[in-house]
């Protein structure tokens, strides 16, 4: 039997350790204007949201602005959270919409992949390539994907979010999430050496 790798790999992922009940209690307090509860929630979500926004938008200089726009909505709109999804899903959905808005404001296309051939040229399988170099190449390959594809990869691999929740976050059907992941993996596979573990 193949062990589900997620459990063993939690240390290197962004899986959130707080329970949904903790988050729901915090949101209820935020809705009543509890400033300390909001600060607790902000600090708990800051690392994950910052990473998600940075990996999705590829705009490090915009990360804190987008993150604070997101948490501003959380603070002032906490009373609108209706419990129909996890708090984390609700917050990530706001972050995704704010990220899309920021990208539209700087005229970044949301669907098209960019510069993928250029990355492919650098990604020739070379066994002498150092680990850091390969990771850089992979990072560039992921960067070359569209924001929609990057978001699915990041939410799946790092944040360990199930595909039906990703669909809720991104406001699209479940099949679209699977299709975007399939497309992203196919493009990445075309760029990278077949046996990454030889070098990683």
């Amino acid at each position: 039997m193949f062990a589900r790798p997620g459990a063993a790999a939690t240390a290197q992922s962004g899986a959130y350790i707080a329970t949904g009940a903790d988050d729901a209690a915090l949101i209820a307090r935020v809705a009543r204007g509890d400033a300390r509860a909001f600060e607790t929630l902000y600090r708990a979500y800051f690392p994950r949201l910052a990473r998600f926004i940075e990996r999705t938008t590829r705009r490090p200089e915009l990360v804190e602005e987008i993150l604070n726009d997101t948490m501003f909505v959380v603070s002032t709109g906490a009373h609108k959270y209706d419990g129909s999804s996890k708090v984390s899903t609700w917050i990530f959905a706001i972050a995704w919409r704010k990220s899309l808005k920021a990208l539209r404001d700087v005229d970044v296309p949301l669907e098209a992949d960019e510069g993928i051939e250029a990355v492919a040229d650098e990604a020739e399988p070379k066994h002498e390539v150092m680990r850091a170099q390969l990771r850089r190449v992979l990072s560039e390959a992921v960067d070359a994907l569209s924001p929609n594809h990057r978001a699915v990869i990041e939410l799946t691999y790092f944040h360990e979010i199930a595909y039906h929740e990703i669909a809720q976050i991104m406001g699209c059907p479940v099949d679209t999430v699977k299709t975007r992941m399939f497309h992203a993996r196919r493009r990445l596979k075309a760029l990278l050496p077949e046996r990454l573990e030889d070098i990683l």
């Binding site: 902000y42 800051f46 910052a50 990041e154 691999y157 990454l196």
Partner: peptide, 25 residues
Amino acid sequence: WERQLRAANNVALPGRDVDRAFAAL
């Protein structure tokens, strides 16, 4: 291949100053 891709994707990013960001918000 999927495991390797996930491991390569999950690299750490430089940390950010949560205190400064929270003060701004």
